[in-house]
């Protein structure tokens, strides 16, 4: 029973939403269910946040490696909870938006979280460089195709690409790197994207059906509960 009821719920809800697409009075049910999901996700955060606290408290109390950083994590977590849930330092008081400009909560986001996010994101520049280098060293045919295409597109988006092939006569202008880059984006790239996207569409159909029919059910755990 512990597995049968959830399997029935999945089947019932899944089937209902598939048919809702074809029945106008039920067309908005998908949006309604998404709303339910948003609410459930916040309740679930009590489990996630609780886990975060437990992990770091354990580290702290058992003096595990790097336990001092757990103090910082916990302090930061509680600090934001108190600032945000009680709207302390919010110029508009409890009725204002929690992310109102000038509130301490939003200031923490702007002055602390924002630089951290931006820098982490910016690290991608270094990682793109190292990945390109690795692709450059790869000696198989697939990697070479990938690299050549990437190189043409990259050059095509810079003035250098135009400069390099400016000598190509107008009648062969398609061979000028910027034009070649446009052609790659519009033709072979489009073909590859289409094949991938069509495949994904069918893959989702098949996997969703396995979930709805209860063939995939590992996420529901074991029978013992």
């Amino acid at each position: 029973m512990r597995r049968q009821i959830p399997l029935f719920i999945t089947f019932f809800v899944g089937t209902l939403l598939i048919f809702s697409v074809f029945i106008p009075p039920m067309e908005t049910w998908g949006e309604d269910f998404t709303l339910f999901f948003d609410i459930i996700a916040v309740f679930a955060f009590f489990l996630g946040g609780g886990n975060l606290m437990r992990v770091h408290f354990n580290k702290l109390t058992r003096r595990k490696q790097d336990w001092t950083y757990s103090i910082v994590t916990l302090a930061g977590f509680f600090f934001m909870l108190v600032l945000g849930l009680l709207k302390i330092g919010n110029p508009g008081g409890i009725a204002a938006s929690v992310t109102a400009e000038g509130s301490w909560f939003q200031t923490m986001f702007n002055d602390v979280l924002n630089p951290l996010q931006s820098t982490m994101y910016a690290l991608l520049a270094f990682f793109v460089a190292s990945a390109s280098y690795r692709a450059f060293r790869a000696k198989n045919r697939e990697a070479t195709i990938l690299l050549v295409a990437a190189f043409i597109i990259l050059l095509g988006r810079t003035p250098f690409g135009m400069y390099l092939t400016a000598w190509v006569p107008e009648s062969f202008s398609v061979l000028q790197i910027p034009n070649l880059a446009i052609w790659i984006m519009n033709s072979p790239n489009l073909a590859g994207q289409r094949a991938i996207i069509i495949g994904i569409g069918l893959g989702v159909v098949s996997m969703s059906m396995r979930l709805i029919l209860g063939i995939e059910r590992t996420y529901l755990g074991d029978d013992s509960g």
Partner: peptide, 22 residues
């Protein structure tokens, strides 16, 4: 996908991800 292809040993492309569990 290109980044996974460049940095990983094996990459499941789109549909293969959904087929994998089966």
């Amino acid at each position: 996908l290109p980044f996974f292809i460049a940095a990983c040993d094996f990459t499941l492309i789109g549909e293969e991800l959904f087929a994998a569990s089966a």
